[in-house]
C-alpha cells in the first residue's frame, strides 16, 4: 500500500525550498506526496489531511511561530476526528522547543542537516508499525 504524505508550509514567510526538497525526496522514495504550498492556515492543513486521508502530515516551519502553529494543528486534528496521525515538523526549531513539541504530541522534529534518506526511512517505519 502506498504511503500518503501531506507536506504543508504554514506561516507567512515565503521560504518553501525546504518543503519542496523534502516533498520531492519522499516522492522519489515511492510515496504519494500531496503538496499544498505556501501560507497554509492550520485549518486548511487539517482539512487537507482529512480530505486526502494521508498517513502522515509534514509541516515545514521557518517563521519562528512553530509552538503556536503546532499546538493549533494538533488541536484541530483532534477535533476533526481524523485520529492519531503522526505529525513531523521540519525547519528552524531550537532544541528545547523541539523537546516540548514532542511532548505535546508532535511525532518527530527534523532540524537542518537531517538527511533526506533518514526522513523517508523514519516515515516508512512509523507508518508500517
Amino acid at each position: 500500500m502506498k504511503i500518503k504524505v501531506l507536506v504543508a508550509k504554514p506561516g507567512l514567510d515565503g521560504h518553501d525550498r525546504g518543503a519542496k526538497v523534502v516533498a520531492m525526496a519522499l516522492r522519489d522514495a515511492g510515496m504519494e506526496v500531496i503538496y499544498t504550498g505556501l501560507r497554509q492556515s492550520p485549518e486548511s492543513i487539517v482539512k487537507a489531511a482529512l480530505q486526502e486521508d494521508v498517513d502522515v502530515v509534514g509541516l515545514s516551519i521557518l517563521s519562528g511561530a512553530h509552538m503556536k502553529i503546532c499546538s493549533k494543528v494538533l488541536q484541530l486534528m483532534k477535533d476533526s476526528g481524523i485520529g492519531n496521525k503522526p505529525i513531523f515538523v521540519g525547519g528552524i526549531i531550537p532544541a528545547e522547543d523541539a523537546e516540548e513539541l514532542r511532548r505535546a504530541g508532535i511525532f518527530e522534529v527534523f532540524g537542518p542537516g537531517t538527511s533526506l534518506k533518514s526522513i523517508a526511512e523514519k516515515i516508512e517505519e512509523t507508518v508500517k508499525k
Binding site: 502506498k2 516533498a23 520531492m24 519522499l26 516522492r27 522519489d28 522514495a29 515511492g30 510515496m31 504519494e32 506526496v33 500531496i34 503538496y35 499544498t36 504550498g37 486548511s44 482539512k47 487537507a48 480530505q51
Partner: peptide, 23 residues
C-alpha cells in the same frame, strides 16, 4: 505517478485555494 519509483507529487490543491477553503 512516477513509472520509476511509483511515487507521486500531487500539487493540484495549490491552485484550488477557493475550493479547498470552501467547507
Amino acid at each position: 505517478s512516477s513509472p520509476f519509483t511509483g511515487g507521486a507529487f500531487l500539487g493540484d490543491r495549490i491552485r484550488m485555494r477557493r475550493a479547498t477553503d470552501d467547507p
